[in-house]
Each structure stands twice: as structure tokens, then as C-alpha cells.
């Protein structure tokens, strides 16, 4: 799949923002006034910034308002509804903390649940795709949720929680890669089933339909960079998990060290999300012979 920067930035940055909102909604850190204001600004910049980035990949962003209609069937629509609800509820909760020094607990819990739901729906947009066997698994939303809550814990200064959540996320990430590497072969979709010609014998592409490229090949036939996948996986693991974990184990790690941990984690998440798209193979590639199965 084409690793569109807008979608990578959206899912990484918004995930962190909503992760922080989850912790804030639960009352961690227990802050009011200006300190709460700073925390909420960070969360909203990340969450809303990511959402705005995601509209960059729309053909007609001016019609985006229409995307709230089909929540009955569409995970993308549900994501939109959850995201906007979470942002509104958490804005009210944040206003209470910042301006009135009041913690409206119920509102906070509701906002935290909606923030979690937003990240879950993002994961489900990918997990529902039977056409991309690497994504088509409950581990996809589980990994998205783990990344979000772990990243949120770092930002919320919950280092003990962050430590164990990062370990859990790393395990999930490695499991996702391990399962994903055999997912297309395990899905049973091959050029033989794609053409229905498998009964006759071995099928191989002879001529493509056109000499140039097309939308499908640009969108689904992405192959550049797969050869560096193993190296990039290690880079992602080191940046997203190893560096923050080591910093957390250091005695007397101050704000500077925390900043390094956050930046390193964000770079790791971006690398992992790039791989999430670049490594994913869509079954339509079989018709074009982009994968010899």
C-alpha cells in the first residue's frame, strides 16, 4: 500500500493526542489551572493536527462534513463521529479543570472512553480490509490502542505505567510483524483464485493491461523500500521502545530526558506506521503480478 504521509502523520500523531486525552480524562496527571491548560493544548494540537493532516489525502476535503452520516456501516464514519465527540467532551472537561478548578469526573471518563473508541475505530478501518491480509486481524486495533495509550502515558508523565505499556506495545508490534509476514499466503487468495484459472494449471501474468501505470498500481502496488524492511523494523523498535525504556530506567531523569524519550518514541511510531503501509500487500496486486505467489 502507498504510504501516504498524511495518513501516517494522522494515525501516529492523533493516536498520541487521543492517548494523552485518555489519561487526562481519567484524572492523570491530577492538574488544574495553567498546568492543565498546557497538557490540554499539547493533546489538542496532536489530536486535531493529525485529523487535519488526514483531510490532506481526501480528493474533496470540502465535503468532509458528509462523512459523519454512515456510522451504521462505515468504520471511517464512526471514527469521525467518535473523534469529534471525544474532542467536544474533553474540551468541556478541560474547561472545568482550567477555568473552574473543577474535575467533572463523569465527563472525564466519558471523554476518555470516546478517545479510546476513536483510536479503536482507526485500527478497525485497516483491520476490516479483507483485501489486505496483513491488516485483517484483531491485533491491528489492539496494536493501535497500545501505541496510543503507551504514548499518552509518556506524555502524561505516568512513567511507571508507560514503562509496562511500552513493553506490552513492543510485544504486540513484534507479534503483528511476525503474523503479517505470512498473512497473504495464509489468506488463500492467489492468482489462481483471482482469475479462476487455477483448475487449468499454473497461472502467470503474460501481459499487463497497459504499458504505463495507473491508480491501482500507485495506490496498492507500492514496493519501494521493502528490501530495507528488516533494518527499518529494528530502527522502529529502538526508537519507539528501547530508547524511552532506557531513559526511564535512568536515575534522576529530568524534563530534558523526558523530551528525548517523547521525541524518540514519536520517530519510532512514525517509522512503524510507515512500515505498516509500505509492507501491506493488497490482493489486487496479484492481478498485476507484483507478488509471485
Amino acid at each position: 500500500m502507498h504510504p501516504a504521509p498524511s495518513v501516517i502523520i494522522f494515525s501516529s500523531v492523533s493516536g498520541l493526542g487521543f492517548g494523552l486525552l485518555v489519561w487526562l480524562g481519567l484524572g492523570f496527571p491530577d492538574v488544574t489551572g495553567m498546568v492543565a491548560f498546557v497538557f490540554f493544548v499539547v493533546a489538542y494540537v496532536l489530536a486535531v493536527g493529525g485529523l487535519l493532516a488526514s483531510t490532506a489525502h481526501l480528493g474533496h476535503p470540502e465535503r468532509a462534513i458528509k462523512a459523519f452520516r454512515q456510522w451504521r456501516s462505515s468504520w471511517l464514519s464512526r471514527e469521525g463521529v467518535c473523534a469529534v465527540s471525544a474532542l467536544i467532551v474533553m474540551a468541556l472537561y478541560g474547561a472545568g479543570l482550567v477555568f473552574f478548578g473543577a474535575s467533572w469526573t463523569i465527563l472525564g471518563y466519558l471523554g476518555a472512553a470516546l478517545s479510546l473508541a476513536t483510536v479503536f475505530t482507526t485500527g478497525m478501518i485497516y483491520a476490516q480490509m479483507k483485501t489486505v491480509p496483513r491488516w485483517n486481524h484483531f491485533l491491528t486495533p489492539a496494536m493501535f490502542l497500545a501505541y496510543s495509550v503507551a504514548g499518552g502515558a509518556i506524555l502524561a508523565n505516568r512513567w511507571t505505567d508507560a514503562f509496562f505499556l511500552l513493553l506490552l506495545t513492543a510485544v504486540l508490534q513484534i507479534t503483528v510483524w511476525w503474523r503479517g509476514d505470512t498473512a497473504l499466503a495464509a489468506s488463500g487468495t492467489t492468482l489462481a483464485t483471482a482469475t479462476g484459472l487455477g483448475e487449468m494449471g499454473g497461472v502467470r501474468p503474460f501481459e499487463p493491461p497497459h504499458t504505463g501505470t495507473n491508480y491501482l498500481l500507485n495506490e496498492f502496488g507500492y514496493q519501494i523500500g521493502r528490501k530495507h524492511a528488516q533494518k527499518l523494523r529494528i530502527i522502529a523498535l529502538v526508537l519507539a521502545f528501547v530508547v524511552p525504556l532506557v531513559i526511564m530506567l535512568l536515575p534522576h531523569a529530568g524534563h530534558m530526558a523526558a523530551g528525548v524519550a517523547v521525541l524518540s518514541h514519536i520517530c519510532g511510531v512514525l517509522t512503524s506506521r510507515w512500515l505498516f503501509f509500505a509492507e501491506a500487500e493488497h490482493v489486487v496486486g496479484l492481478y498485476y503480478g507484483t507478488r509471485a505467489v
Binding site: 480528493g59 462505515s74 471511517l76 478501518i125 480490509m129 483485501t131 495506490e219 490482493v283
Partner: peptide, 13 residues
């Protein structure tokens, strides 16, 4: 809105 999700969901291109 040109989000492209339907093209992702179609196995046949």
C-alpha cells in the same frame, strides 16, 4: 469525498 477507502476494500481493482 475522494477518501479512496472503497478502492482499498475492493479485491478486484
Amino acid at each position: 469525498i475522494g477518501c479512496g477507502l472503497c478502492a482499498w476494500a475492493c479485491p478486484y481493482g
